[in-house]
Design a protein around this nucleic acid. Sequence first.
RNA 1: GGGGAAAUUCCAGAGUGGCCAAAUGGGGCAGACUGUAAAUCUGCUGUCUACGACUUCGGUGGUUCGAAUCCGCCUUUCCCCA
Length: 422
Amino acid sequence: MTDIIETLQNRGFIYQTTHDQELRDHLRTPRTYYVGFDPTADSLHVGSLVPIMAMAHLQKAGHKPIAIVGGGTARVGDPSGKTEMRKMLTAEQIEQNQAGLHTQLSRYLNLDGQAGRLINNDQWLLGLGYVDFLREVGCHFSINRMLTAESVKLRLETGLSFIEFNYMLLQAYDFYILMRDYQCSIQMGGQDQWGNIVAGIDLCRRMGIEEQTFGITFPLIMNSNGTKFGKSVEGNVWLSAERTSPLDYYQFWRNVDDTDVKRFLLLFTFLPESEIAQLTADGANINRAKEILGFEATRLNHGLEAAQQAFATAVTRFGQADPQGEVQTSSAIREVAIQKVADMPEVAVQHNELGEIGFLQLLVRAEFAASNSEARRLIQGGGVKMGERVITDPQARLEASDLAVDPILRAGKKRFKKVVVQ
RNA sequence: GGGGAAAUUCCAGAGUGGCCAAAUGGGGCAGACUGUAAAUCUGCUGUCUACGACUUCGGUGGUUCGAAUCCGCCUUUCCCCA
């Protein structure tokens, strides 16, 4: 078995680990590991992709993933990495969200119950009696130590409620149960989870688990210009196609900073390290590398067909970085037949609206502007085009002649929709 | 339990009776330059049937010709003392 830690490290997944050498030895035989996901929304976003991809790598290497969807802990709310208390969710909301998360995780991981599984920590957290919990678990925690944890210290500035303060105990308890009942010996999470993970390892030992347990944290992914990762024109980039269309998803990856391409290819695709090194060796193929990043990331999340369509659509709009296919890659992007699959987002108008409907209204309908005022500003700023014609007059209406040649409505350079008459 | 302070437009944060749709910064959007990149420069950034009108400054009720600004009550948050 190859050293999977080595692979993860080379690809940029590892921020910290406990017991580095022992962990490597530990992973020479098949093990079970887990990551917790908060069901605070019905979809994950690209920020969660780091743990998901890490889990997928480990599963490929023969280990067994457990995804904990924190039904129990979501009712409490993890204070780590947040500056404010999170709003509480109702049981129904959490349940709905869990279903969504399961579908999305299943695209990257085999969670059939054998090779891997999804577990809700409701089953052991909700039945806990307060007094019993305090006696069994609470007595192993030192307030003095908890107060020194980075995640807690940060919150002492702004305030921390008791319920949030307890989050660490619950997560540690999760780890203990998973180790005890599922032989899950490794917990992974974002770097802000370090304190919680270490607390879990400690608890396992104090509760009498003989075997060593381990922790791995992932780095917080930032864009290289220091801004938050995972934002686009439309806001958060989600994994669900309803919230972020495959085309927008592709565009998000296609538009990352030059300096982020290599790092993101390593983290968010399964292309071999050597190939990624070649692709990004000099700046010459940077745009092809971005196309491949977009294509591969979209393929993983939305499937091959959606990736082909997204790529083809983008190409018909913006052109192609490597039309001759000169750049070597193992990606299936090589086989995309552009003409056939292009898939244009559309905005519909009725027959009788031609010559009637103003561009202000059309822009709002296409969701390029949230209000008439915003649409007006967009036009006044010179950002609206119908075909090749720049719209300058906010009063202008959509005429039948506009649709004859090039029926594409554009807002800025990157947003476009085809106007179709119904 | 007692005392003090604060709540402003996406965020941070000015404004303390009319000149306030509300400074400044960040973010966002658009334009120029480019490579669907970055950096830089410029404009915009409450809503509308738009050179005018309307609604915003935690909630509510007052004072006033006129309030984000003054007063009462309520809610929330923070700080100090116990």
